[in-house]
Design a protein around this nucleic acid. Structure first.
Length: 591
RNA sequence: GCGCCCGUAGCUCAGCCGGAUAGAGCGUCGGCCUCCGGAGCCGAAGGUCAGAGGUUCGAAUCCUCUCGGGCGCGCCA
């Protein structure tokens, strides 16, 4: 339970009471009322801005309204003091029992602590990765994969029902190019082409993809097709080779994603949508609403392509839904553009019952956001909403030096390389240590070192340390119930030190953080919060060094020790709960 | 030229659906190891929140403009 939300409900109830008494006009908008931790902890446990927000519409002075509200709040359950401060804040002090109850809730809930119902089981569609099935995944894809997966997990924790989706771009020129490259490797596998021939074809731009990863693909094609497509024209082999090559690439991508701990619920094929007539149907649907027309676009100002010439095109009226220009849906050869397929795909999502859509894209797709949002509005009659999370570049470093990557030189760093080198947990955590729209540096040396510099290690260390204390306690207090549930029954009232109280409050704010991060679609808040918990815990741990009274384990005072163990277990539980969202395994020991 | 993102301490970054004295790490300086894991902790110094206007009781946060950086800009996906 989010204890701050609970007290907000109390504030709202007291506001209603003031209204009933005639002290407030009816029908006030309380949407901007908040109850949150005060900036300065010395102000109290919680603060509300209710009086300041409502003063003007109520026609009252903020401090007068605050005084009236505070008088009521002072009598509310768990409140020991409600004071008016500054321009009209009401600071609340709560009984310690309020926070200690949160700690008990945490211990009883385990890693499920922080689960929320704000999602109300509404369905959300999260599309991410959607890498072209033309080769292995590289590090750039890893960020989108982690952001999408963690966002999905965060939304699930907040009570949404989430579908993780991958859109397979298997209908365009890219996969034809893949098929040609795979066919060349097929000929190579049959001894009809040598490595030099392939190099020459690449140099002549006859082939687009030259990576070694296609060698085994060629071998498998040779095994499956024999020499059936050796002397045939492209028209004969393109489709079957393409189909098999795409399937193999997709399998490889799924393997890479599995290594990163990412799995999808739904894969949607662009080609499948085209072949099922969904693109035609969608465009007809839009045409019926006069949202498709033939027109001539203006050249982009300041950057007119050299071969620009005005020509009539089939356009979608994206400008009617907030886009900057209308967008072409048909190429000059009559086939659909990529965008047309995406219109059909997003209509498909809406028709499957999703009105909350999230797409995780690379930053280079920024120019695509408005048109997609326009599409979603158009195909849903304005009911569905699309949020796009753009992920900025990841730059790979090693001890501060850029890792040189070049496709040509073969020093391209794949997702698999990175996972093999540092482990999936490190990759996942680090990918969330920046908000998605800020560039991220990934330093191989730094992310694996054991120091305060390395946030993954720092958080894991806190968890391991907590587990270590609990292990030690088992030998010190044999026969005691030190399980989380048992510790929940400990007399935690003896947690009186300010540092202990602060840590309890921090743990109690975890459910609030989950809700805020989920509403904002910002999974990066989770690792930051875990860093705060870890710092508070390490600090308290070290205080026990200076002041033996503060040590977690006091051999001749089992009652105090058990209470502190409850706190230690709370730390471990919240860290585990947060790591679960990120998809990182909490370690019980560091090695 | 237009659109989107970014600009916060020396460095790397949180904070941004408006709230009180703008936070953290690194670095610098000064401290803390008989100990439940010192792989750590504590303290100090360090700021025109890029700049200028505006809205507001209140702006790092919202709006406008300027400057600086990144990305994108008709049949690539």
């Amino acid at each position: 339970m989010n204890i701050f939300a609970a007290y907000k409900d109390i504030v709202l109830a007291e506001l209603d009471a003031l209204t009933a008494e005639g002290l407030l006009p009816a029908g006030l908008d309380t949407g901007r009322v908040t109850v949150e931790p005060p900036r300065d902890p010395s102000h109290g446990d919680m603060a509300t801005n209710a009086a300041m927000v409502l003063a003007k519409p109520a026609g009252q002075k903020p401090r007068d309204l605050a005084a009236a509200l505070a008088a009521r709040l002072e009598r509310a359950a768990g409140v020991t003091e409600a004071s008016v401060a500054g321009p009209g804040f009401i600071n609340l002090r709560l009984l310690p029992a309020v926070w200690l109850t949160c700690l008990r809730d945490c211990l009883r809930a385990g890693p499920a602590y922080g689960d929320s119902r704000i999602g109300d089981r509404r369905r959300v569609n999260v599309e991410f990765v959607s890498a072209n099935p033309t080769g292995p995944m590289h590090v750039g894809h890893a960020r989108g994969a982690v952001v999408g997966d963690a966002l999905a997990a965060l939304l699930e924790k907040a009570g949404f029902r989430v579908a993780r989706e991958y859109y397979i771009n298997d209908a365009g020129a890219q996969v034809d190019a893949l098929a040609r490259a795979a066919h060349a490797r097929y000929l190579q596998a049959l001894g009809r082409l040598g490595e030099a021939d392939i190099a020459a074809m690449l140099a002549r731009k006859e082939l687009e993809y030259g990576g070694d990863y296609l060698v085994p693909v060629g071998e498998r094609l040779a095994a499956e097709f024999g020499d059936a497509y050796v002397d045939e024209p492209e028209a004969t082999w393109l489709a079957p080779v393409r189909e098999r090559a795409v399937a193999m690439m997709l399998d490889a991508i799924k393997d890479d994603l599995a290594a990163l701990g990412v799995a999808f619920d739904v894969f949607t094929s662009e080609r499948g949508l085209v072949q099922a007539g969904r693109v035609d149907a969608t465009l007809a649907f839009l045409e019926a609403q006069d949202l498709i027309y033939t027109g001539v676009l203006e050249p982009p100002k300041g950057k007119t392509p050299e071969d620009w010439e005005p020509r009539p095109q089939t356009l979608f009226r994206a400008t009617r839904f907030g886009d900057d220009v209308d967008r072409p849906v048909r190429k000059s050869d009559g086939s659909w553009t990529y965008f047309a397929g995406d219109i059909a795909y997003h209509r498909d999502k809406v028709e499957r019952g999703f009105s909350d859509l999230i797409n995780v894209f690379g930053a280079d797709h920024g120019g695509y956001v408005k048109r997609l949002q326009a599409v979603v509005r158009a195909v849903s009659d304005g009911h569905a909403h699309l949020d796009v999370k753009l992920c900025q570049l990841v730059s790979l470093l090693d001890r501060g030096e850029p890792v040189k990557m070049s496709k040509r030189a073969g020093t391209f760093v794949t997702l698999r390389d990175v996972v093999n080198r540092v482990g999936k947990d490190v990759v996942r955590f680090i990918m969330l240590t920046r908000k998605n729209d800020a560039a991220l540096e990934f330093d191989f040396a730094k992310v694996t070192e054991q120091s305060r510099d390395n946030p993954v290690w720092y958080v894991q260390y806190a968890h391991a340390r907590a587990c270590s204390v609990l292990r030690h306690a088992e030998t010190l207090f044999p026969g005691r119930d030190l399980s989380p549930a048992g510790l929940a029954d400990a007399a935690v009232e003896v947690l009186e030190a300010p540092e202990e109280r602060d840590l309890v409050r921090l743990l109690a704010s975890w459910p609030r953080l989950v809700e805020g991060a989920a509403e904002a679609h910002e999974p990066h808040r989770v690792p930051y919060f875990l860093g705060e918990v870890a710092a508070a815990f390490h600090g308290l741990w070290t205080k026990g060094k200076d002041d033996a009274e503060l040590r977690f384990l006091v051999p001749d005072d089992p009652a105090r020790s058990l209470a502190r163990l409850a706190l230690v277990q709370g730390v471990a539980t919240v860290i585990a709960s947060g790591l679960q969202i990120i998809g990182v395994e909490p370690v019980r020991e560091l090695r």
